[in-house]
Each structure stands twice: as C-alpha cells, then as structure tokens.
C-alpha cells in the first residue's frame, strides 16, 4: 500500500487526472471559462470522488467481478444526485451556471476510473485519500485553466465570486487591465483546448527539468504513468 504522501503526490502531480491521464476532459473544457466556475465544479467533483472511493472500497469484498461496473455507477450516481440537490439548495446561481455539468459528473471518467483502478483494490483509508488527492488535482487543473482563460479572455480574476462565497466576496473580483477589450477566443471552446495543451506542455517541461539531475527518476515516472 502506498503511503498517504505518495497518494497525495500521485493525485496532484504524477498521475494528475486532467494533465496526465487526460480523463474528464469534457467538463474540464466546458466549464473552465472562469476561475469560480472551475472551482465550483472542481469541489463538486472532489466531494464525489472522496465519497465514491470510500463507499466502493467498503463494498469491494461483496461485489463480484461481473456486476462491479453497474454497482459502481449506481453508487456514483446516487452521490452525484445528493451533491446536485445540495448545490441546488445552497448555491443556486452557481448551480444554474454549471447546469448540465453537475449531473454529468456521473459520467466523468476520472471517477469511474479511480473506482475501478484504485478503490476496488485498496482499503478504505487509502481509497478516501486517493479520492481526495485525485479530486484536488482535478480541481487544481480546473482552477488553473479557468484562471488562465478568464485572465486572457476577459481581463479579470475571481469574477462572480459571490456565487460561491456569498455577497461579502463580490468585492473580490480583480480587474487586471482596465478597458480590456476581451480576447473572445480564450472564453470560447477552442481557447479551452489551446489552454489545456499549453498547460500540459508546461507540466512536461517542469517534469523534464526535475528529471534532469538524476536519470533514475525518469524511469520511475514512466512506470507510474503506465500503471
């Protein structure tokens, strides 16, 4: 069993679901047009991941091989329904903006991927930790991409912060450039693809820089990615 630190590192960096595994791209690309939208969906996905990993790990001994996928999907769907209802009750405006992408968390391949690859084979504690770290990694990707697109696309940061943090946060919006005309492409879908590509490239560059001092790390990295 991996140590918790190792799991955390895996989720945030080495096996980041968005940047390395390239899972869950549909919501990632669709709602990352502002930082707050990204953060909202990221938190919802993280909660789903923690709960689903925990529950699936709990029932992993009872659920046989043939029916495991339908069982996983049912568990994930129930959790997402709960989260959707909570968001509907407490974050109504954000719920409206994220719209179809909240129920669609069910189909996020990152979640079923972690259930199948990790939670169905590991004890509860490690699985919950894996859910948390994978969720945080995914949230980090959403927030980074959201911030990038928001800055380039409309020249602000934290726009609509009141949707998540209440009225007190409405002053959080930073206007980076006054009179910015807006680079519309960054907010449109092509901007999401280009932005994600650039972020993945950046991650690869950093990995390469880190790997340079010792050649050993390269092979280790490669092995974990394959797994």
């Amino acid at each position: 069993m991996d140590s918790y630190r190792q799991i955390l590192k895996n989720g945030l960096w080495v096996n980041n679901q968005a940047f390395v595994a390239l899972l869950g791209l549909c919501p990632l690309l669709a709602v990352s047009n502002t930082l707050i939208n990204g953060l909202g969906l990221g938190i919802a996905t993280t909660l789903t991941l923690i709960l689903s990993n925990t529950l699936i790990s709990l029932v992993r001994q009872q659920v046989g091989g043939e029916i495991r996928l339908p069982v996983f999907v049912l568990i994930i769907a129930s959790i997402v329904t709960i989260i959707e209802l909570i968001m509907n009750a407490y974050f109504y405006e954000l719920y409206l903006i994220l719209g179809i992408f909240i129920p669609l968390i069910v189909t996020n391949c990152a979640i079923i991927g972690r259930a199948e690859a990790y939670a169905s084979k590991n004890p509860v504690g490690a699985s919950a930790m894996d859910g948390l770290s994978m969720g945080l990694g995914f949230t980090a990707a959403l927030v980074l991409l959201g911030a990038l697109r928001e800055m380039i696309g409309s020249g602000t940061l934290f726009a609509n912060a009141h949707l998540m943090f209440g009225e007190a946060a409405s002053g959080m919006t930073l206007t980076l450039i006054d009179d910015y005309e807006g680079f519309l492409l960054a907010i449109l879908p092509p901007g999401a693809f280009i932005g994600l590509g650039l972020l993945i490239a950046l991650k690869n560059v950093i990995d390469k820089r880190l790997a340079k001092p010792s050649q050993q790390t390269v092979t280790v990295d490669f092995a974990t990615k394959k797994a």
């Binding site: 005309e181 680079f183 519309l184 492409l185 960054a186």
Partner: peptide, 10 residues
C-alpha cells in the same frame, strides 16, 4: 480566423 472570432468589432 482567430482575430475575426475574438475581435469582431475591430
């Protein structure tokens, strides 16, 4: 095309 989509006014 990028400019046309991004800055239709200009």
């Amino acid at each position: 095309a990028v400019l046309m989509v991004s800055f239709p006014k200009n």
